[in-house]
Amino acid sequence: MKWIGNRQSDNVEDRRGMSGGGKLAAGGGVIAIAFFLIKAFFPEAAPFVDSIQNQQGQQSEPTEQRDLTPEEIESGKFIKTIFAYTEDTWGQIFQENGMDYEQPRMVLFSDAVETACGGATSASGPFYCPGDKKVYMDLEFMKELKTRFGAEGGDFATAYVIAHEVGHHVQKLMGTSDKVRQLQSERSETEANKLSVCLELQADFYAGVWAHYNQKYLEAGDIEEALSAANAVGDDAIQSKTSGQVQPDTFTHGTSEQRMYWFKKGYNSGDIKQGDTFSALMD
């Protein structure tokens, strides 16, 4: 993707040179991730979870700073440029639809991080926290996506992941995600999972719309890189690689085929009005 020399976003905070500051002391690991997921998907439970975390005495270890490597500095510039592209694109789309776009922020981190949704580690993968309207990303995930899950890699695979997470921010601004969380609290686990799939596929669709608006920056093979990444993070692909079993009722992000389909639909149409994954997928 073409990016060198273009505007870089001022909304990216790079914490990759920090160690310890985001790591959780007591009650970390799996418990921390569980708390994070509860707060992310069920904001109404946040006060209760905060109370438990405070009782456990979770505190951050002292933070140490190191210099970033030349490779990290370069990747940071790329991330800031891609994030600027999302700001420009969604600012334009919202304006075209008579709305104001509130820009999100992004945090680059290593190992672990504290968010308004709770503590998270690199194992969580890139995510959007509606509590502070920030995208969180450990770039080591992109390496794992290639080495462990078979994605082609490439800079546009990273761009696709960023655009997907910004898609969740768009859902937050439009009120979609809040409505879904409310519906999930009223449904069975299976139905709640289906709603989660619809939400994730719509974020893929929005990533495709973003790519449509940025075709002037695309290079040969970029869309294939995005589709390869979407294919690699399908629920069926991940479950097959990690456990050898595929359980559709537990899907929360959609199959590889679905994720590629909705990204391509967004890219080909460039029309946010065609991204109603809920009507298309819910019974």
Rank of each mutant, 00 (worst) to 15 (best):
K80V: 03
I93R: 03
N54D: 09
E61A: 15
S19N: 10
A116G: 15
P47Y: 02
I79T: 04
G76M: 07
A84I: 02
F94G: 02
G57M: 13
G22Y: 11
T86W: 11
K23T: 03
L108G: 01
Q92K: 14
G118V: 08
I31E: 08
A25Q: 15
I52P: 04
A112M: 07
V30S: 15
F41H: 12
V49E: 00
W90N: 03
Y101D: 03
A34L: 03
L37W: 04
T63I: 13
T86N: 02
F41P: 03
D50P: 08
N97Q: 05
G91L: 01
E87S: 02
V30N: 10
N97G: 06
Y85L: 05
L108C: 07
N54C: 01
Q103T: 13
D100M: 14
F35V: 02
P47V: 05
E102P: 14
T89P: 02
S51T: 10
E102M: 15
Q56P: 07
P47G: 05
I82D: 07
G119T: 06
A112K: 04
Q58A: 00
D111V: 13
E71C: 06
C117D: 11
G20M: 06
S75P: 07
Q59I: 09
A116V: 09
A25E: 13
V30M: 12
A32W: 01
A45E: 13
F94W: 03
Q92F: 06
L108I: 04
I33Y: 12
D67N: 12
